[in-house]
Design a protein around this nucleic acid. Structure first.
Lengths: 216, 216
DNA sequence: GTCTATAACAGGATAGAC
DNA sequence: GTCTATCCTGTTATAGAC
């Protein structure tokens, strides 16, 4: 913790760290104070209550996580290009913030209704609409390639799963594959090429009467 | 809650429900007592402490989740057959226990060391070894089919991700796809054919000089 | 075995000196 | 703005009557 930063920033940084690791319920204000090398009373001075401090941290996490998807899939370009962008962007971001998705998922579950209300329904970007549109694009692409038996919505969920899950289940993955942090990071870096490769193979046509495909 | 069951079983059932939903830290003994329609003091009479009650619930969850994988992938049969079994078995089990994986993942993270010690290292079934072996099998199959550029370990992680992630992120998936519980269940049922289909397509050879493959 | 009442303590929040 | 001391509520855990 950088002692030079001004106090409010130090607290916020510490709060992000601790809340993301332990979740709201298991976090003690004292833990945050300790990590910020600061007095417990200061937390209340700057943020009034644990709940308000948490709200800031959660809001920030949501802002870090969701707008990226929406921006990428609503852009121009082929479905395959968007997939590559999603993989690239999210794996990079998650390597820097490995606990982010687990935190978000766990806290959403603690207050499902609040999430639906604020992030889904009242969100001017209408993520549900944008996702639906992208899934349609992807389905069109699948049909074109003669693999219409694959459902695009299922495939999209699978894509997100492939990107996000290893981070959510990081301790499990590390344990079961006997990886240390460094090996885990390497594996996630390799995933940046693995996932697009897998999708390229899936999307590459059954459509036999296309001429030998162009370069990669 | 079945009032006829004897008390200890009622408590355990209630504890599973509540702990899985809220996690250890957010759970109150009172919540469990209420759900079991029983007095709070009874919880201590039967299980001594919150921690001990939780340990029972967590142990049970681990037993429900892990042995299945180990059994399936260490059996006989082709890699593809094992994949089909994994998908079938886990999707069924998770539909009955949708909160199980999120619970396990969150609590593992709260005490990573304990998990590594008990579930990975001191486990006589040596899950890490068994997984390594299966990954080798899968890689052999990939090589045989002329898709050696796909890494089997990455693929295995992806398989687990595809199966488990939608349940871990259930509220998010439901929100972003605008599904009610029933629609979600339907989607998960459909996944039982989707995932094997996807893997069949991946594994089905690049190997051009094979004769036109047998039926599906 | 089951309940009510209460002890014991942890943790969030505030008062007030500096 | 920062600290120490303290209040006060909620929660685990136990004592003891039935």
């Amino acid at each position: 913790m950088n002692k030079d930063q001004k106090t409010e920033a130090r607290i916020l940084e510490a709060a992000i760290e601790i809340f993301q690791q332990k979740g709201f319920a298991a976090t003690r204000m004292q833990d945050i104070a300790d990590r910020a090398s600061i007095n417990k009373a200061m937390l209340h001075y700057y943020f009034r209550s644990k709940q308000k401090l948490f709200d800031r941290v959660f809001q920030y996490a949501i802002q870090q996580f969701f707008p990226g998807i929406v921006a990428i899939i609503s852009g121009n370009g082929s479905a395959e290009a968007k997939i590559r962008q999603l993989v690239e962007f999210y794996l990079d971001m998650l390597q820097k913030n490995p606990r982010l998705p687990g935190f978000i998922i766990h806290e959403i579950q603690q207050n499902e209704e609040h999430f639906l209300e604020t992030v889904v329904r009242k969100n001017p970007f209408q993520p549900a609409r944008i996702i639906t549109r992208f899934v349609e694009e992807l389905q069109a692409e699948l049909n074109l390639q003669g693999v219409s038996e694959l459902d695009a919505r299922q495939l999209f969920v699978s894509l997100i799963a492939m990107i996000v899950f290893p981070f959510v289940a990081r301790p499990m993955v590390m344990g079961l594959f006997e990886l240390d942090s460094e090996a885990f990071e390497k594996m996630m870096s390799a995933r940046k090429t693995f996932i697009p490769l897998l999708f390229a193979r899936l999307l590459q046509g059954q459509a036999e009467n296309k001429d030998a495909e162009g370069g990669e």
